[in-house]
């Protein structure tokens, strides 16, 4: 019971919300780039655990055939998905029959697309997580990216008739909006930077370079100069940390970052904007807007409440759907 990959795509990996408890031993957390899209995908297929491991597909998606009946959902970037050569929508539960094939193509907007399966993938935890640690070769599917010919097992099959409900576009618009604004809070070394740097980060436009990946996003834009010449002693960094090496060009640390780093931190992208940031494509530009820690925390908790309401509503839909089958 599972999925056979007929084309591997650019970079296709199994990820959940990340590996915690091992950063003090030097391990990266890994995990999905876009946590919101992962949660949306799991909600749509009625997985109680919104952090259940999903398939993360980047830039150019894979092709696969399904060897069981199942309900899946695709969220995140639009890779023009087709089931048996017919276009299918994102952000809806999709009913799949054994023998169906799914083809994904180049992302038209955003970078990362997620595929969740009702009941989840049948994959064991490695150090408390199913996330693939590509640099160490552990976790996920054999510790590596999916390759053509791989067979990925699933836990349960599920037979359903198609439904027509899905997520409303306002919860997914963060991927498609042309005007990108990324909020940040001041970093621990914010005052190590010149007044010009502090003004520039709030006023000027930044662009994502092609040297950006799951480890970090390299930006071009204004030079952010240090006023302090002292060396920072290596300390913890996290998802969204905006660090600035002596060159003055900012780097934002992403899902596969190292747990510690030695460059001064001018800021920290707020958790609520990490999904939007993750989906920015090389060449796209965006603005930073500074906010307070309290605002950032409120936004995060508000997003959590929205997700809980969404989950309650979708669980109700699934109940009705189940009755229709009895």
């Amino acid at each position: 019971m599972g999925i056979r990959f007929t084309k591997e795509g650019f970079l296709t990996t199994i990820q959940d919300d990340g590996r915690y408890g091992y950063q003090s031993l030097g391990f990266s957390t890994n995990g999905v780039m876009d946590q919101l899209a992962m949660k949306h995908a799991n909600l749509l297929v009625n997985n109680n655990n919104v952090k259940e491991a999903v398939l993360e597909m980047s830039i150019i998606g894979p092709s696969m055939t399904f060897e069981a009946d199942m309900v899946i959902a695709l969220t995140g970037a639009d890779m023009s998905p087709k089931v048996n050569h017919k276009p299918v929508p994102l952000n809806k539960p999709l009913v799949i029959q054994a023998g169906d094939r799914l083809d994904l193509h180049a992302a038209k907007n955003g970078v990362y697309t997620y595929l969740a399966i009702s009941g989840g993938f049948d994959i064991a935890d490695t150090l408390n997580s199913k996330s693939t640690a590509l640099h160490v070769g552990i976790g996920g599917f054999k510790g590596r990216a999916i390759q053509t010919g791989d067979y990925l097992p699933i836990r349960t099959s599920l037979k359903r008739t198609p439904v027509h409900w899905g997520l409303s576009s306002d919860v997914t618009s963060y991927i498609y909006d042309e005007k990108k604004v990324i909020h940040y809070i001041e970093g621990r070394q914010y005052d190590w930077f010149t007044d010009e740097a502090k003004a520039a980060i709030d006023e000027e436009l930044f662009q994502l370079t092609p040297q950006s990946n799951r480890m970090g996003f390299r930006l071009t834009g204004p030079m952010l100069e240090h006023k302090e010449t002292k060396q920072l002693l290596t300390e913890a960094t996290t998802f969204g940390t905006i660090q600035v090496p002596p060159s003055g060009e900012a780097i934002i640390l992403m899902a596969d970052r190292q747990p510690t780093g030695g460059y001064p931190k001018i800021g920290q992208v707020i958790q609520d904007d990490l999904p939007k940031l993750s989906q920015i494509r090389p060449g796209q530009t965006f603005h930073f807007v500074r906010c307070t820690l309290e605002e950032a925390q409120q936004k995060m908790l508000e997003k959590e409440r929205q997700l809980n309401r969404l989950q309650a509503a979708i669980q109700l839909k699934w109940k009705e759907w189940g009755h229709a089958h009895n």
Partner: peptide, 25 residues
């Protein structure tokens, strides 16, 4: 509480904001 990460002169404490009570810094 999630995990604590030591470095030369710092210990960084990760926690789940949704569980930790009280929540302010």
């Amino acid at each position: 509480f999630i995990e604590a990460v030591p470095a030369y002169t710092t210990l960084t404490i990760y926690y789940d904001l949704r569980i930790s009570e009280p929540r302010s810094f």
